[in-house]
Design a protein around this nucleic acid. Structure first.
Length: 493
RNA sequence: GGUCACGUGGCCGAGUGGCUAGGCAGAGGUCUGCAAAACCUCGUACAGCGGUUCGACUCCGCUCGUGACCUCCA
């Protein structure tokens, strides 16, 4: 048996816009940082897509033998709502609207976020730091940036001096921006008189009296700039230069650009070796976003209680739907696509469940190793889950054919295929079996078996009217009967 | 306006300079008392117009269309 080549992994580094071989700086350790949610409202499906993509990255790196430290933050300090600096941020606004303490808002939506992550079977990160838990470190980073001369204090706030930094180190490399173009496109300059350049961004912001979340600092009462927390927490836990930093495409500029500038200004180190950006989930071709209000919450998705949903879909259907598309492509959400995914997933799972019952042949007509190799190749090629899933469906065909006695597979081949499916379907893609199967509900199983028995008797006496009535009635109740050579089986539909 | 993507068969979505993606739906077939499931076969798709090439869906240019970022967003 030829050995399957499980490495090297390649990923598209958005810093270079090229697919590169992934070589960790300190193997087998890998440092992975992903920008987490701002917890001022419910997460929607677009957020879920991003975190699911990185969940698969985390699972894959782990699967091919790396020891991954996965850091994903919780942004629990509100960002200002606009440049107008009216002293209000999203969390404060939410707190006022819901008559809650800001930290109650934070807790509420953090809990909700965790519940959603679990619902979609996303693994917990190794560390989940919060911005409020790292105030001291953020103040210290501001001080280091001030000391390096790339920031200035103005009226109780501290701003990052973008033009000065750009002159020395260059700015905009990640997102492909040029300083002149950025300046030419600057809009809305009112309320920015504290800044020397409209491109400058706050790394510490003076708090208005009505601002709810604020802390003492060397520059007065205020709160940290919103790019700062990621710079602080990523480097604190992963080192001044770490392997992979991920996030949604919409964070590329300015958020990630600013992170790079801050780290270089503060510590003289380029913080990230590989940047990975996931694309957006769209609805009718438009980005799903909180501000557009076109997002579904997971509850609405499962219940189907939303004007754009024909009916509900299970979390695993949605996860599978997402993984049938490459992370770097936009994915358009539609009922038809969801329904297709639902059926495909059910076929994949049905075949997976057949694996333990396959009867081995003396010889094998199938090259399972080749299939396995194609799965590894697909995943190592920039996490190409759609191609890997396509290979899995080749496996489904094999499993069903063997089950039908149309193809022979020896015990070794069955074992190898079982291991492959176990690894890819459950460990790597992170899919789970859903719903009550026959084995999980003894009463139901007993009742259905009794009906199957009655129907068999009716069939034996060629009373097909009765046997069909039993089958049709059960189907109406969501129980599908399947006649096979070995007898009748059932499953929920 | 600037920058950058994308436009694949009924739908969703991979991919590649010449060789089958895959899923769902549809058609025909095998099996079955009939179904369901499963398996087999099928559609010759790559926005349009030029160019490069022996050959382009894949490279280049233009046109049209859509979207993202430039402001909080995954």
């Amino acid at each position: 048996m030829t050995a399957v080549k499980k490495v090297p992994f390649h990923l598209t580094n958005t810093l270079t816009r090229k697919k590169e071989e992934f070589v960790p700086s300190d193997p087998p350790h890998v440092g992975l940082y992903v920008c987490g949610p701002t917890v001022y409202s419910d997460v929607h499906l677009g957020n879920v897509r991003t975190f699911t993509s990185f969940d698969v990255l985390y699972r894959w790196l782990t699967h091919i033998g790396y020891n991954v430290r996965y850091v994903r933050n919780i942004t629990d300090v509100g960002h200002l709502l606009g440049d107008a600096a009216d002293g209000e941020d999203r969390i404060s606004k939410g707190a006022r609207a819901e008559q809650l303490e800001p930290m109650e808002v934070v807790q509420k939506y953090t809990n909700g976020f965790h519940a959603v992550m679990r619902l979609f079977n996303n693994l917990d990160p190794s560390i989940e730091p919060t911005a409020t838990g790292h105030l001291l470190e953020q103040v210290e980073m501001v001080q280091r940036i001030l000391k390096s001369g790339f920031a200035y204090e103005s009226n109780g706030s501290v701003y990052f001096d973008v033009p000065k930094y750009a002159e020395k180190h260059g700015y905009g490399g990640l997102s492909g921006r040029k300083i002149d173009e950025l300046l030419a496109n600057t809009r809305g300059t009112e309320g920015q008189d504290e800044k020397r350049s409209p491109l400058d961004f706050a790394i510490w912001k003076n708090a208005e009296p009505e601002h709810l979340m604020k802390w003492n600092s060397p520059w007065g009462v205020g709160f940290p700039g919103w790019h700062l927390e990621c710079s602080v927490m990523s480097t604190k836990y992963l080192g001044s230069t770490f392997d992979i930093h991920g996030g949604g495409m919409d964070l590329k500029f300015p958020h990630h650009e600013c992170e790079i500038a801050q780290s270089v200004a503060a510590d003289g180190q380029v913080p990230v070796r590989y940047w990975m950006h996931t694309n957006m989930l769209t609805v009718n071709g438009r980005k799903m976003s909180k501000s557009e209000g076109n997002g579904f919450t997971p509850e609405e998705l499962i219940s189907g209680d939303h004007k754009l949903l024909d009916r509900g879909y299970s979390p695993m259907t949605v996860r599978f739907f997402m993984l049938q598309c490459h992370y770097a492509s936009t994915l358009d959400f539609s009922n038809e696509a969801l329904q297709a995914a639902e059926k495909g997933l059910s076929r994949l799972m049905a075949a997976t469940d057949l694996l333990p019952n396959l009867r081995p042949a003396a010889s094998s007509e199938v090259d399972v190793a080749a299939l396995e190799q194609r799965c590894y190749d697909a995943m190592n090629d920039d996490l190409n889950t759609p191609v890997m899933i396509a290979e899995l469906f080749e496996g489904v065909r094999i499993i069903n054919s063997v089950n039908d006695g149309k193809l022979s597979l020896d015990q070794e081949g069955i074992d190898q295929l079982s291991r492959l499916f176990e690894a890819m379907v459950f460990d790597v893609l992170g899919l789970m079996r859903e719903g009550a199967g026959a084995a999980s509900d003894r009463v139901l199983d007993g009742l259905v078996k009794e009906f199957i028995h009655m129907r068999a008797e009716a069939k034996a006496s060629r009373d097909f009217a009765t046997s069909d009535r039993i089958r049709d009635r059960l189907l109406e109740l969501g129980i599908q009967l399947n006649d096979t050579k070995e007898g009748t089986t059932w499953n929920k539909v």
